[in-house]
């Protein structure tokens, strides 16, 4: 591990000022410290941002929530309002990691965790995300749990977060404090597709600090479901966060949100499926057609074609469950 210095910031100003070149923000450290041990991340300085007062969940005037970036995953999943009004978010968080990790991991850090692609984590092998231009061995190598949607010649990584999938479905926004001041980023714009710059996971600029996530009210039934090889402590093969409202039980879809995890370089909002469903009768048949429309764009690799039927089935099953719980 490369030697580094550590500084605990007391204010946002201090944090942003301290986060100069070669520095990284430290939240719970559950991913960053691992990457430092592996030599994948080599920050010269860690700026601890867990003590800036961003550790609260507040009710917004419109009934939504403002979730501080330093709220731990454990606290977020245990929050009564989150559990009652945003069950997909609580379910998503609880589906991730272990109790011990959730007690350390923060909301901001969760959004910025790096891919678990094996090549990214192995510094003795090429990886365009870690070392731009070095190549992508995953495309022809081990990629069973990598992307089927939106990947590029240079990168087939997936984003590992479950929570981010729920936030994508919730139309959340991310509050960011940067060197130039504060701004708000729609959640769907935070994470990128790899394109020709897979080294960039997000649209954030150096020094940008996530301070909070804004969640508008949901007011419709929602659910998160994650498929994985073992029952706990595993990244998603495919996950889904969905919400659905019909005018009358079994009637016409008036609003629907579908986001998929484990399929792309970012949480994948299934806009095409949503469009198909809005105004349609809520039926298994309609859900299947919508899922298939979304997955027409899928470009599975040699060994991850199973994710296409898996994602399709999860969409149909989850939406069906929301209609007839």
């Amino acid at each position: 591990m490369r030697p580094f210095t550590y500084a605990r910031a007391a204010t946002e100003d201090e944090a942003v000022a301290a986060c100069t070149d070669g520095a990284a923000y430290l939240g719970g450290g559950t991913n960053l410290v691992d990457l430092m041990r592996l030599g994948v991340a080599e920050p010269a300085r860690l700026v601890d941002v867990a003590h800036l007062g961003h550790d609260r969940i507040e009710r917004r005037a419109d009934g939504g929530l403002r979730i501080g970036a330093a709220v731990t995953n454990g606290d977020l999943a245990a929050d009564r309002t989150v559990r009652a009004e945003f069950p997909l978010l609580a379910q998503a968080v609880l589906a991730g990691a272990s109790g011990q990790i959730r007690n350390l991991a923060t909301v901001g850090g969760n959004l910025l965790q790096r891919t678990r692609c094996a090549y990214f984590q192995d510094v003795t092998k090429p990886c365009n995300k870690r070392e731009p231009g070095s190549g992508c061995p995953a495309r022809e190598g081990e990629h069973r749990n990598l992307a089927i949607l939106g990947h590029s010649a240079g990168c087939v990584a997936t984003h590992p977060s479950d929570m981010a999938v729920a936030l994508a479905a919730l139309d959340a926004e991310v509050r960011v404090r940067g060197r130039e001041g504060t701004r708000t980023i729609p959640f769907g714009d935070l994470h990128r597709l790899p394109g020709t710059a897979p080294e960039r996971d997000t649209c954030l600029e150096p020094g940008d600090l996530i301070t909070a996530v804004e969640v508008p009210p949901l007011r419709m039934p929602s659910r998160f479901r994650k498929a994985r090889e073992r029952a706990s402590f595993a990244f998603a093969l495919v996950s889904i966060a969905a919400a659905l409202r019909t005018d009358v039980p079994g009637g016409t879809v008036t609003d629907v949100r579908i986001a998929l995890g484990g399929v792309a370089h970012r949480p994948w909002r299934a806009r095409r499926a949503e469009e198909r469903l809005r105004g349609a009768r809520a039926s298994g048949e309609a859900f299947l057609r919508a899922a298939e429309a979304e997955l027409e764009a899928a470009e599975p690799l040699r060994d991850n074609g199973y994710k296409v039927p898996l994602a399709r089935n999860l969409i149909v099953r989850t939406l069906s469950g929301l209609v007839a719980p």
């Binding site: 678990r116 094996a118 092998k125 190598g141 081990e142 073992r230 706990s232 402590f233 990244f235």
Partner: peptide, 25 residues
């Protein structure tokens, strides 16, 4: 343990990638 033909090693060399049962299993 998944052998990587191109490099000649097992790619999933930690307990996050090589899965053993958890209590929940």
């Amino acid at each position: 343990s998944i052998m990587d033909e191109a490099f000649g090693d097992h790619v999933n060399r930690d307990l996050a990638q090589y899965h053993v049962p958890t209590c929940a299993d």
